[in-house]
Design a protein around this nucleic acid. Structure first.
Lengths: 226, 226
DNA sequence: CGCGAGCTTGACGTTGTTCAACTAGAGTGG
DNA sequence: CCACTCTAGTTGAACAACGTCAAGCTCGCG
């Protein structure tokens, strides 16, 4: 796997396009990239947060740790996206984060980040827009969990994985059935049963961990019915 | 009910403390206060949004309209708080809003609001903080809906109503059992049954629509158990 | 080559919604 | 002011939806 440097990321990602040369230099000084193995924990819900995280390479999940050993996955984060932006103005992480594939995460020192927000209003507007974008995602999750049942929730999960994460009808992520269930808010067994049911009905095709969506419009219908 | 003027609100609420005299003057020119009767709709999910809303007096609810006629209440908003801040950078409302009590809502023209965010970095930081604060609320709702059952969800709802909305052990809002159910993500009948169960067990006391929390620590325990 | 994690399937039990019927109180029009 | 209606609240019973449990399988990794 290619190892990225902070400079490469800052020069290539449009997230940093609004910054001056000096500001970029500052970020480079105050940032570092760490490497995580598949399965490794990146951040722990409740832990002290003093950096802002950005996925540079790989795939991570963010999740809420429930009372009864049950996790609820909130998001699968791909490059190049912020992770747990809420930690900007929050001393502790609201979510846990762990790597699904081998991943590289860039950490920016929090004070520097806050400084940039204050100084650069174009950047702070972007952050606000990103937060609002996330908010819409949370509303979708709340709708899914709150007033849909099995089929609707599962369809939501598949549509999310395909459209938002894989950005393809071919969902070739290293995601387990358990994780699909934890994202959809259903049991692992239900996720498995639904997958094979939809496979059987020709709505999708299974090939090991790879899921190929064949009839997205039917999934959308399932999502709407609830 | 006292009728508020925009000027009174801007002079008295700390939300506007960071603005200069000129900025305040601008807001006054670009804002208006409207009155809503109990039950009236203030904003409709999906509708075009060109103002930012602030509850000045009364009580409103924000909710997601589900597929099968089921609403899911996201928040009960009291004075003086922003409603549906997401509409800053979103053309359409993500949520519906309606009045639970007779209410007064201040509407600020969106362009002006965006302008203030850009010009006044202290204000934009505050908006970011408010958005992050909401985010934590959404995570609580997701946890509640996603991995708790009846009792846990209901306890979450009561604790929210008492601690966040009423800010008192005496919950004297004009909220119906149906609305409590719609907040907790359970059926109206379940909400009723749980209320009378907890009443019977001495954990709370019912007096018509008024709910008095007697043993908050037990509710907290129920919430944790799930 | 063996072990464990992930996957799969069926049977069973629990949980909570839905349906139905009834009561009480608040609002409305004659 | 009274009758009427409609909404909110309440309770019990039946049923459907899903999670849980158990058992066996497969595949990849050490």
């Amino acid at each position: 796997m290619q190892k990225y440097s902070v400079k490469e990321i800052i020069d290539s990602s449009k997230l940093f396009g609004k910054f001056t040369k000096d500001e970029k230099e500052l970020i480079i000084q105050k940032s570092t990239i760490l490497h995580y193995r598949k399965g490794e924990s990146v951040a722990k819900q409740g832990a002290f947060a003093n950096h802002i995280m950005l996925v540079v390479e790989g795939l991570v999940k963010t999740y809420l740790e429930g009372a009864n050993e049950k996790n609820l996955i909130i998001e699968f984060v791909t490059p190049t996206r912020w992770v747990e932006l809420a930690s900007i103005y929050d001393a502790n992480f609201s979510l846990s984060v762990s790597a699904i594939k081998d991943s590289q995460i860039m950490f920016i020192e929090k004070g520097t980040f806050i400084n940039l927000i204050t100084k650069n209003s174009a950047f702070s507007s972007e952050i606000i827009q990103t937060l609002i974008e996330s908010q819409k995602h949370y509303f979708q999750k709340i709708t899914s969990l709150g007033n849909k049942q099995l089929h609707g929730r599962f369809a939501d999960a598949l549509l999310y994985l395909s459209q938002e994460v894989a950005q393809s009808a071919v969902v070739d992520l290293a995601v387990t059935r358990k994780e699909i269930g934890e994202y959809a808010g259903i049991s692992t067994e239900s996720a498995i049963r639904l997958l094979s049911e939809l496979n059987h009905d020709g709505i999708l095709k299974l090939d090991g961990k790879v899921i190929i969506i064949l009839k997205e419009n039917l999934l959308t219908k399932l999502s709407q019915i609830g």
